[in-house]
Nucleic acid binder design. Structure first.
Lengths: 298, 298
DNA sequence: ATGTCTTACGGAAGACGTAATAATA
DNA sequence: TATTATTACGTCTTCCGTAAGACAT
C-alpha cells in the first residue's frame, strides 16, 4: 500500500487530467500514469477510464474514492496537527525547584508565562538529596539545579545565577553574631549533609569534608531537604551551608544565616532529560536565560 | 509524508519494542529505528522516548497516535474494500441486445443471475443501425452483437451462436409461399437496409448489395431497428433479411419469414469497452460462453 | 496538427540488511 | 553479561524525469 499512489489517485480524481495532476504533485505526467497503473494493479481493477482525450472515474473508482477520501484527509490533518503541536508551546510544564522558589525561579516562570500564555506552569519542589529522580520518573519536565550536571542522560542549559553561600547556625552559637565567616572557620562546626541519592559533588558542596586549606570538617548528619536541614539547625544539631537567596526565606528566631567567604558559589541552571526535550522546554530555557537577574555577583 | 514511517510508528506504539515491530513489518530493527527517527524529524519533535531498555510514547506521540490511528485504519480498510469490490460481482450490469431478446440472450442472463445472485441485470435494446454508441456512452456495459468486431476500442468474446437468415416478405408476395429461398433470388426483391451509423459490414450483412454470384440487389430504404424494418415490410415497402430467432418474435398476419439458403450465417457474441472491462463483465461473458445453445447449426 | 496519455530507458535517490557500537539492567 | 536500541556502510530496489510513441480530436 503506497501512499504516493493513493495521493496520486485522489488528486487525479479531482483534476481528471494527468498533466495538471503531475503539476500539483511535482511529478512528470509519465510518473502519474505509472502510479495510477500500479495502484490499479494492486487493487485488481480499473479505477479510472482514460483515453488520450478524456479521463473519468469508473464505478469502482468512485466507490473507492468515497471510502478513501475522508481517511486520506484525516491522515494528512493528523500529521499537520502533530507538526503544529511539536512547534507549539502549550499544555502544562512542570518545573522543579530546590529548597525555595527564589527570585530566579519565580522570575523565569513569570517571564515564560508572559511570552507563552497558552502554557501553564506547575512548580514542584525537588529534594536537595535527589535532584534528578523526579525528572527521570517524568514527574517534572525541567528542574532548576546546581551546575555543572554530569549525568549522561540529562541536558543542561546555561549558567543562570552565581549565588553566595551562608552558614545557618543556632542563634546562640558563638559565630552567629559575626557579619561573615571565613571558609577555614568551618573546621570548628559540624555540618549537616545530604541523604543518600545525592551526587558526590552536591554532598561536597553542601557539606565539604575539608576546608580549602585541608582541615577536616565534621559531619553532623544528613537530611533530604533544606527545610529539614534548617529544622536540625534550629534544634542545635549542627550548622548548614545554604544559598543566600534560599536562606532569605527561612525566617526563624532560632536560626541565623551568616555569609561565608572563600567558598565557591552555587551555580544554578536548568536541566532536563535529553530524550524528552520539547519545544516547551526550549522555550522555558530561553525565558530563563533571558531573565534579568543574570549573573548576580557572589 | 511517508506511509512506511506512519505504519512503523503505529505498530511500534503497540509493541513498544523495536525487534518485535521489525518482525511484524518484515524489516530489520535498524530500519525501524531509522523510520521512526525520520518521522520524528518530519514532525519536528520526539514521538517515542526510548532507552535500550524501555520504549514509551511521549505526550506528543500519544496525541499524534490518537489522531492518526482511526485515519490509518480507515485507509487500510478502504483499500481492502476496493480489492474485494474489484473481485466481486455485484451491482447492476446493463446488457444490450439487438432486435429481440432471443433465447441466447435470456438464457445467458438466466445462467449469469443464477451464478451471481448479488448482481442485477438490466436489458437494453440496441438499434441495429448503431450497435456501439450506447456502449461508448456508458449506457450499457456489454452488448450482444454481430461478430467479428473490428473497432479498436472494443473487445469481443467468443462466438456464441451461428444463426440462419430469413427473408421477411409481405404475405401477398409471390415468394411468400415458398418453403425456402435461394440467395440468388434476392436479386428480384428490394431490401430494407440500415440507417447511417451502422458499420459497413452490418449494412452489407442485412442488405447485401449483390448476390453471391454478383447480381445486384436493390435497396428499398433504411431503418434504425428491426421492428421498424418489419413495419416497412408489412406496408409493402420492401423485404428484409433478419435472423431466424428474431423473426420468430415478429408474429404478424401481414408478414411472412422465409428461410434463405446460401447466405453466411449471423455470428453472435458479446462485446464491451476494452477500457471498462470489469469482473462483472468477465463473469457475464463466462456465463454466456457456458450457456447451452452453443453453436446452434445455421 | 495539436494536445494528451503511455512506454522505454537510464541515472539518482533512498530503502534495507548486516554488522559493529552504545547503553541499560 | 545479556538484551536492546543506534549507527555506519554497501547493495539493490524503485523512484522519477526525459523523450519518443500512440491515440483522439
Amino acid at each position: 500500500m503506497e501512499f504516493k499512489e493513493l495521493e496520486c489517485f485522489v488528486v487525479l480524481s479531482e483534476e481528471l487530467h494527468f498533466a495538471r495532476t503531475a503539476e500539483r504533485l511535482y511529478l512528470s505526467p509519465g510518473r502519474v500514469s505509472q502510479l495510477v497503473r500500479s495502484l490499479e494493479t494492486r487493487i485488481g481493477g480499473r479505477l479510472l477510464e482514460r483515453t488520450s482525450r478524456r479521463v473519468r472515474l469508473t464505478t469502482l473508482g468512485e466507490r473507492f474514492l468515497a471510502d478513501l477520501r475522508p481517511a486520506f484527509d484525516a491522515l494528512g490533518q493528523a500529521v499537520v496537527d502533530a507538526k503544529t503541536a511539536a512547534r507549539e508551546v502549550t499544555g502544562v510544564l512542570r518545573v522543579g525547584f530546590l529548597a525555595t522558589p527564589t527570585g530566579l525561579v519565580t522570575g523565569s516562570v513569570r517571564r515564560f508565562e508572559e511570552r507563552n500564555p497558552d502554557c501553564e506552569v506547575e512548580l514542584v519542589e525537588i529534594p536537595l538529596s535527589d535532584p534528578f529522580s523526579k525528572l527521570r520518573a517524568h514527574q517534572v519536565d525541567v528542574v532548576f539545579t546546581l551546575l555543572p550536571v554530569e549525568e549522561p542522560d540529562i541536558a543542561a542549559g546555561a549558567e543562570l545565577n552565581h549565588v553566595a553561600m551562608r552558614l545557618g547556625l543556632p542563634n546562640y552559637h558563638p559565630l552567629a553574631r559575626r557579619s561573615s565567616i571565613n571558609a577555614e572557620e568551618l573546621a570548628s562546626v559540624s555540618l549537616i549533609g545530604l541523604d543518600d541519592p545525592a551526587p558526590r559533588r552536591w554532598r561536597e558542596h553542601v557539606a565539604p569534608s575539608h576546608t580549602p586549606s585541608g582541615r577536616p570538617i565534621a559531619l553532623a548528619g544528613t537530611v533530604a531537604t533544606s527545610q529539614e536541614g534548617v529544622s536540625q539547625v534550629a534544634l542545635g544539631r549542627g550548622a548548614m551551608l545554604i544559598c543566600t537567596p534560599s536562606a532569605a526565606s527561612y525566617v526563624s528566631p532560632d536560626v541565623v544565616f551568616v555569609p561565608v567567604t572563600g567558598l565557591p558559589p552555587s551555580i544554578l541552571g536548568l536541566a532536563w532529560l535529553k530524550s524528552s526535550e520539547t519545544a516547551v522546554i526550549r522555550a522555558f530555557n530561553e525565558a530563563a536565560e533571558g531573565h534579568s537577574p543574570h549573573m548576580v555577583a557572589a
